[in-house]
Design a protein around this nucleic acid. Structure first.
Lengths: 349, 349
DNA sequence: ACGATCCGATCGTATGGAATG
DNA sequence: TCATTCCATACGATCGGATCG
């Protein structure tokens, strides 16, 4: 029976050390109800027997787990790691928890295939294996309802509005990118955006429109263009088509803001084929992570949501709620990091 | 006390339904010791009270968790998702488990900072929260020792040799890429490889060397070149430098095999600047995922380790061991998927 | 004798209160 | 009185054995 735990328990240590199992428990927890020399002895025995507490027993007994959860919604598992949002958020969460020695568990919300299926709540969260959780992305209706009405544990939303939430300030980010380009001398600026049914894309578009009103920018309707991202190859070809058309004209844009690093790469590639120098004759900026940007050649200027900070804020709010404290700011918008390397410069005539 | 579980238990349901708590348990499990009408009644009550079993209690009582673990080693958390290996493996594992309704937990091995620190075993694995685990990547010495001597649970290695392991067949993959290029008519083939202190890179290099012996290939020493990947920007610049030198010569290579998609992109970009047509005058292939390949323009030919299959095999072995069955093949090498789109063609004179 | 139902012990840990010196 | 030490119990689900009609 290879699955048998064969694990050392408190009793085993107690027997070995000649004390009661409660003494062992006390020793391991540093609750001061035991003499120093006995504690030391017990600890050494425990170490020798390589004792590991049984987490399930601890959780059951203490009715708190000391673990936090992350529930990821609305992402196709095939491209979790390619998602410009979910991937980095998950990654930042892991990193934040490891740094603070918080135990954590990540799970994925199951979306109902057809509407009359029973809703299946996230198992760890509803099974009491975590004290609270960050909920990432868009929750579908049954899940939102469940969170609201049947769930008693605290949670904080990441990326979507809710009672407690933290998200990227997409509107302001795009606005600032435009501002920066204008300050460099750009007037003709294009914006290739993503699906506006996603909040962040819609907000980004608003930011661009606001910039058009506030700054001396020339725009044409075909310069604000929607690129569908899926399937990916289509998206790339549509981008290239757009670029071949718009960049060939004499009053072509001098800068292009691209939602997505792939789109930005396609624009750069077409520009080079048209003998346009990047960045001096055309500046290009992509939304995406630093890693993606630096795997482009030339290294792409990029706007990267501050995922670590977003997660940090969300964890802070969650911990306040777990501690039963009131939270002053129940929501926050986090500014992105912008890096202007290699593909952005003042425009050249 | 918002953390209080406030969860419905078997007893609550029993009280509500006017039966004993064991009857409820029986009803929920379909162990046939209860009459159909009572079972139905109990189930309806349980549903109405939205009962969720307490996982910790189940695990404690039954001494088996029904959960599998994945322990990820030797990756800097900052670039988990950018790692061409760990990211896709984790992603495939999640997907495989979700598809099969296996519960799972992913954790990251803590590497000792200095050697005399006590080794900290992975908490979930050693805390009995999983029945067994896949161990991904290179385990450092203390961890390997712990797995071997202090651990009693079964595990299967992914990506490194061990008693039970599954990994990518890097040697054969590169060999086959070369074979394919030769068959297309290529003779002058370059290979930009990664750090050979990683097994997979070393094996890939061996595969290339074997191909050089077996097939009619012309090689020069500078065509087999090591590109350090970190820091990333340096890697890209070194690649570009190499390409500017080697692709300008009259007897330039007609095909380049690149370890890493960033490297491949840089080669394509320099080639285009040198007015070389890709793929007709230069074929380029990168190792990496389909998603990365399709975020390049033109879409990059690529070699993608078959991560889903690797994980599938590893899970199979693990499940065999958990069931106490003997495993016929305790190890396996998995062939990669190769896609020749857009950047590979027969050479043109 | 048999199906339906229930009781009680159990997993490993944590803790208030009792007993020890 | 006080510092130590230990006992009994509870957490929630499971399952062998006992009970009932």
């Amino acid at each position: 029976m290879s699955r048998k735990s064969s694990n050392v328990t408190l009793k085993d240590i107690a027997a070995q050390a000649g004390v009661s199992h409660t003494a062992v428990s006390a020793a391991l927890h540093g609750t001061g109800r035991i003499s120093d020399e006995k504690r030391e002895h017990i600890l050494s025995v425990a170490k020798k027997m390589s004792y590991r507490p049984r987490l399930a027993a601890q959780m059951l007994r203490s009715n708190r787990t000391g673990h936090l959860g992350m529930i990821v919604c609305g992402v196709n598992l095939t491209d979790l790691m390619d998602s410009g949002f979910h991937g980095p958020i998950v990654s930042s969460f892991i990193q934040a928890c490891e740094e603070r020695d918080i135990r954590y568990h990540i799970e994925f919300a199951k979306e109902a295939v057809n509407p009359d299926d029973d809703f299946i709540p996230p198992a760890y969260f509803s099974g009491g294996m975590v004290d609270g959780a960050l909920v990432v992305g868009y929750c579908d209706q049954p899940f939102a309802h469940w969170l609201e009405h049947e769930n008693t544990r605290p949670w904080v939303s990441v990326g979507e509005s809710a009672a407690y939430f933290v998200k990227d300030n997409s509107e302001q980010n795009v606005y600032q990118v435009a501002q920066h380009l204008v300050a460099l001398g750009h007037r003709r600026i294009a914006f290739l955006h993503g699906d506006v049914s996603f909040d962040s894309n819609e907000e980004g578009l608003h930011g661009f429109e606001r910039a058009c009103l506030d700054f001396p920018m020339d725009t044409k309707s075909q310069w604000v263009h929607y690129i569908p991202m899926m399937p990916r190859r289509d998206g790339m070809h549509k981008t290239a088509e757009w670029a071949r058309t718009c960049l060939a004209e004499s009053d072509r844009p001098t800068a292009v803001i691209c939602k997505g690093m792939g789109v930005a790469r396609a624009v750069v590639s077409v520009a080079q084929q048209l003998q346009l120098d990047v960045p001096h004759q055309l500046s290009v900026i992509g939304f995406g992570t630093q890693a993606e940007a630096e795997r482009s050649y030339p290294c792409m200027a990029h706007i990267q949501p501050d995922y670590p900070k977003i997660v940090h804020q969300a964890l802070y709010i969650l911990e306040q709620r777990l501690a039963g404290r009131d939270v002053a700011n129940s929501s926050s918008l986090v500014a992105a990091n912008m890096v202007w390397q290699d593909t952005v410069a003042p425009p050249q005539d």
